[in-house]
């Protein structure tokens, strides 16, 4: 199939491994899905310490399950990316370990306190939900199909994240202040989650033309603000003065993009932001420490650790 035909036929779940897709499409889809899979892994890596720090048994159980779900999403997405025939899962995991694999801006920032948990588990996951919901109509069927499960589980994560936030927002004065401090710090990063405005985004045009991507960065960000600015306010959070957010009409919001630090964003995106590099390197060290296990089980399809492991369900 040539690129022109792909553009003509591009529609929700239109293409599958049975189709002979041009390399340009397969590479663009791989880049997008690999980025998504990497983000699941690095998000899980960032949140994992809070399994231990969760302040009740139920929260601990729910948080352990959430981190597990994210790893499951990574597994599913790497499989969807592999189905394009450009890279193997192992290659993609190697790229992630050695700092070549790109992932979401928010997961480059360190997390230190429980008050930051809802910043990820409510706002960032909520933002991710918005994007992922549109990707159910992606033209690469295995990707769209993975989104069905991912969106279903993310729904629970966002609810749990909101519950953690609600508890803090109605807690002691100290808890409320911790929550506001975390919000002040994370809010600009959360808005940048959707990337730069469309005229600065390099990959959008082709991905949109071949139906991989369904909405523009701007559309997604504005829809997020419309939903989440009122939610934040309803929990008593004050929206920081900068970046300036303007209510442009009937419950619609617009952000002044020049108020955001795009130099930092692009440094982060290139894996060159220092705390983020620390995250990448410490995860790499953890993975290297179990290299010996992977060597031991290599090539064994029916044993634990392989894709066929029963507990992977």
């Amino acid at each position: 199939m040539d690129v022109e035909t792909v553009k003509e036929r591009a529609g929700p779940r239109e293409f599958s491994p049975a189709d002979d897709m041009p390399e340009k499409y397969r590479k663009a889809a791989t880049r997008m899905i690999q980025f998504h899979a990497n983000s699941e892994i690095m998000g899980a890596y960032l949140e994992k310490p809070f399994i231990r720090q969760a302040p009740s048994i139920d929260r601990k159980l729910a948080f352990s399950a959430k981190v597990q779900d994210e790893i499951g999403h990574g597994q599913l997405l790497y499989r969807a990316a592999e189905s394009l025939g450009i890279k193997t899962r192992e290659e993609m995991l190697d790229e992630l370990a050695n700092g070549e694999g790109k992932f979401l801006n928010c997961f480059h920032y360190p997390m230190e306190s429980w008050a930051e948990v809802p910043m990820i588990a409510f706002f960032v996951d909520g933002a991710a939900m918005r994007r992922q919901a549109t990707l159910k109509s992606s033209s690469w069927e295995p990707y769209a199909h993975a989104m069905d499960k991912v969106c279903f589980e993310e729904g629970f994560h966002v609810k749990h994240g909101e519950d953690i936030m609600a508890r803090m927002a109605t807690g002691s004065r100290k808890e409320q202040q911790m929550l506001q401090d975390a919000f002040d710090e994370w809010w600009p990063r959360i808005i940048q989650f959707f990337g730069p405005t469309d005229d600065k985004s390099t990959h959008h045009d082709f991905s949109a033309e071949v139906g991989l991507k369904q909405k523009t960065n701007d559309e997604l960000r504005n829809a997020f603000l419309d939903a989440y600015v009122p939610k934040a306010k309803s929990y008593g959070l004050e929206i920081p003065e900068y970046p300036r957010i303007e209510e442009v009409g009937d419950g619609e919001y617009h952000v002044e993009e020049d108020d955001l630090d795009w130099d930092e964003f692009f440094t982060v995106s290139k894996n060159e932001y220092e705390p983020g590099k620390g995250q990448i390197d410490s995860r790499k060290a953890a993975q290297e420490a179990v290299d010996w296990v992977r060597d031991t089980i290599e090539g064994d399809a029916n044993l634990p650790g392989s894709q066929a492991a029963p507990a992977a369900d």
Binding site: I41, A44, Y45, K48, I51, R52, K60, L61, S64, A65, V67, Q68, I71, G72, G74, Q75, Y78, R283, A286, Q287, V290, V293, R294, I297, P304, G305, S306, Q307, A309, A311, A312
Partner: peptide
Amino acid sequence: YTEWQVHAPTLESDLALANIAQ
């Protein structure tokens, strides 16, 4: 056991041990 979450040798073994921890 939860220490192994996101640190297990493979994604599959990660999921399995997380199940056991829970």
